Amino acid sequence: MDRVVFNPFAPLMLILLFGLLVLVGLVIILFPIVFLTAIGATFTKLGFSWREALLILLLTLAGSFVNVPVRTLESRAAPAYDRYVAVYGRLYRIPEPVQRTVLAVNVGGALIPLAISLYLLYDSVVISGGYLVMGLALAGVAVVTVVTKLVARPVPGLGIATPFFIPPLAALIAALVLSTFAGGVPVAAVIIAYVSGTLGTLIGADLLNLGHIAELGAPMA
Score class of each variant (00 low, 15 high):
residue 1 M to R: 09
residue 3 R to I: 11
residue 3 R to C: 14
residue 4 V to M: 10
residue 7 N to I: 06
residue 8 P to W: 14
residue 9 F to R: 08
residue 11 P to A: 08
residue 12 L to P: 04
residue 12 L to D: 13
residue 14 L to I: 14
residue 14 L to Y: 13
residue 21 L to A: 07
residue 25 G to E: 11
residue 26 L to V: 09
residue 26 L to D: 02
residue 29 I to G: 05
residue 29 I to R: 11
residue 30 L to K: 14
residue 33 I to K: 15
residue 34 V to S: 12
residue 36 L to N: 12
residue 37 T to S: 10
residue 38 A to H: 07
residue 39 I to C: 09
residue 39 I to H: 10
residue 39 I to K: 08
residue 41 A to M: 12
residue 43 F to L: 10
residue 43 F to E: 03
residue 48 F to V: 01
residue 48 F to T: 02
residue 49 S to Y: 04
residue 50 W to C: 05
residue 55 L to Y: 15
residue 55 L to I: 15
residue 58 L to M: 03
residue 58 L to F: 01
residue 59 L to F: 03
residue 61 L to W: 13
residue 62 A to W: 12
residue 63 G to V: 05
residue 63 G to N: 06
residue 64 S to F: 04
residue 65 F to Y: 12
residue 72 T to A: 11
residue 72 T to S: 10
residue 74 E to P: 13
residue 81 Y to M: 09
residue 87 V to H: 03
residue 87 V to I: 12
residue 87 V to G: 02
residue 91 L to H: 05
residue 94 I to L: 13
residue 95 P to T: 05
residue 95 P to I: 06
residue 99 Q to T: 09
residue 100 R to S: 04
residue 102 V to H: 04
residue 104 A to S: 05
residue 104 A to L: 00
residue 104 A to I: 00
residue 105 V to F: 15
residue 105 V to Y: 14
residue 105 V to N: 14
residue 107 V to L: 12
residue 109 G to I: 07
residue 110 A to W: 02
residue 111 L to R: 08
residue 111 L to F: 12
residue 112 I to R: 04
residue 117 S to R: 01
residue 119 Y to V: 02
residue 120 L to M: 00
residue 121 L to Y: 06
residue 121 L to A: 05
residue 121 L to R: 11
residue 124 S to F: 06
residue 125 V to F: 15
residue 133 V to Y: 05
residue 133 V to H: 08
residue 134 M to P: 15
residue 136 L to G: 02
residue 136 L to K: 00
residue 140 G to R: 04
residue 141 V to W: 00
residue 145 T to D: 14
residue 146 V to P: 09
residue 151 V to Y: 11
residue 152 A to T: 07
residue 154 P to Y: 03
residue 155 V to Y: 01
residue 159 G to W: 14
residue 159 G to Y: 15
residue 160 I to D: 07
residue 161 A to W: 05
residue 163 P to Q: 10
residue 166 I to R: 14
residue 167 P to R: 01
residue 168 P to L: 01
residue 171 A to G: 14
residue 172 L to N: 03
residue 175 A to K: 07
residue 175 A to Q: 12
residue 175 A to M: 09
residue 175 A to G: 09
residue 176 L to E: 14
residue 178 L to M: 09
residue 178 L to F: 12
residue 181 F to Q: 01
residue 182 A to I: 07
residue 182 A to F: 10
residue 189 A to S: 15
residue 190 V to Q: 13
residue 190 V to K: 08
residue 192 I to A: 00
residue 196 S to R: 01
residue 196 S to K: 01
residue 197 G to A: 04
residue 197 G to V: 05
residue 198 T to P: 03
residue 201 T to Y: 07
residue 203 I to T: 04
residue 204 G to P: 14
residue 205 A to V: 03
residue 206 D to T: 14
residue 210 L to Y: 04
residue 211 G to K: 11
residue 215 E to F: 10
residue 216 L to G: 03
residue 217 G to D: 00
residue 217 G to W: 00
residue 217 G to T: 00
residue 218 A to F: 10
residue 218 A to E: 13
residue 219 P to N: 11
residue 220 M to F: 02
